[in-house]
């Protein structure tokens, strides 16, 4: 399995990369870590004439946190997130969710920007972007624009990126220290793509009732989604076992759940409910039902 022929360029500036992409008019592709693109090329699912290697462009691998939230440069690797000294405190959901991405050697090269641009329906980072209302910053020939995650993922492996645009950064809104959250996924082997996954987070009011719940899911439809019915059912409630079961029962409400060689749609719906139950219990710091039975 060898890739088709292509040319290779390694510009040292963002402007240089964009100029090359623009000049090839859809026939050039960015390569970052290569951990999704190389398999696609080897399977000959894509055959660009030119690869534009952005790995050595300066200033795209920053991780910073401030009053406006967490900013990750497009070239931040899974390894960088895992090893960052304070990110687990600043954005524990991001760190937990991306700990499920791929295996050691792939984590040493795969990047945040590549994962967003690749837009695999089961990938964790796009799921976190959707769950957290992230902003994706891209630069192209026409300048810079900010794309809300909700408008970015168009379908399986399809995004709102123009052929001459490069993702430079993703911004996650601030994360209060007291926030309740959990991430749960199921994959057949650690590091493989999830059959389904769920991210949950919310804050509590003075009476212990849920304010502004966010529930995102991956692996169940052609793109990462928010579970609107479950969110609406959780809002304003105290999170006890009865609430958890009622909310989880709505997990797949209104979703067009995908069926593929890995799992039938009914299995995925059932899995999504179980994962949401588990995530809600963990977020509420309640014991897991399977352990208490």
């Amino acid at each position: 399995m060898k890739p088709p022929r292509f040319d290779y360029a390694r510009p040292d500036s963002l402007a240089g990369a964009i100029a090359l992409l623009a000049a090839h008019n859809g026939d050039a592709k960015v390569i970052a870590g290569g951990q999704s693109l190389m398999p696609m090329l080897n399977f000959r699912l894509t055959s660009p004439r030119l690869l534009v290697d952005i790995a050595r462009i300066a200033d795209l691998n920053h991780i910073s946190a401030g009053a406006d939230g967490v900013r990750l440069g497009a070239l931040v690797r899974w390894r960088d997130i895992e090893r960052h000294p304070t990110l687990a405190k600043l954005h524990p959901l991001l760190v937990e969710a991306t700990s499920h991405v791929a295996h050691y050697q792939i984590r040493n090269r795969g990047t945040v920007g590549g994962s967003l641009a690749h837009a695999d329906p089961a990938a964790e980072m796009p799921g976190i972007a959707i769950a957290c209302d992230a902003q994706i910053i891209v630069v192209g020939r026409a300048g810079q624009r900010t794309i809300p995650a909700a408008d970015f993922f168009v379908g399986a492996l399809m995004t709102a990126l123009e052929p001459d645009e490069v993702i430079v950064e993703v911004r996650l809104p601030p994360w209060p220290g007291e926030r309740h959250f959990a991430f749960e996924e199921f994959s057949r082997r650690k590091g493989d793509f999830a059959l389904a996954g769920v991210a949950v987070f919310y804050d509590l009011d003075g009476q212990g009732r849920v304010i502004d719940p966010h529930i995102g899911a991956i692996g169940v439809t052609s793109r990462p989604v928010r579970l609107n019915a479950a969110e609406a059912a959780l809002a304003g409630r105290a999170v006890d076992e009865a609430a958890i079961l009622a909310v989880a029962a709505l997990a797949d409400d209104g979703l067009d759940v995908a069926e593929d060689i890995h799992a039938p749609a009914d299995y995925r719906r059932a899995l999504l409910q179980v994962l949401l139950e588990r995530a809600l219990r963990r977020a509420a710091r309640l014991p897991d039902a399977e352990q208490t039975q």
């Binding site: 290569g34 190389m38 080897n42 690869l51 050697q105 040493n108 090269r109």
Partner: peptide, 8 residues
């Protein structure tokens, strides 16, 4: 450690 099949 990296996958040498996934790196040019």
């Amino acid at each position: 450690a990296v996958r040498a099949c996934l790196m040019l």
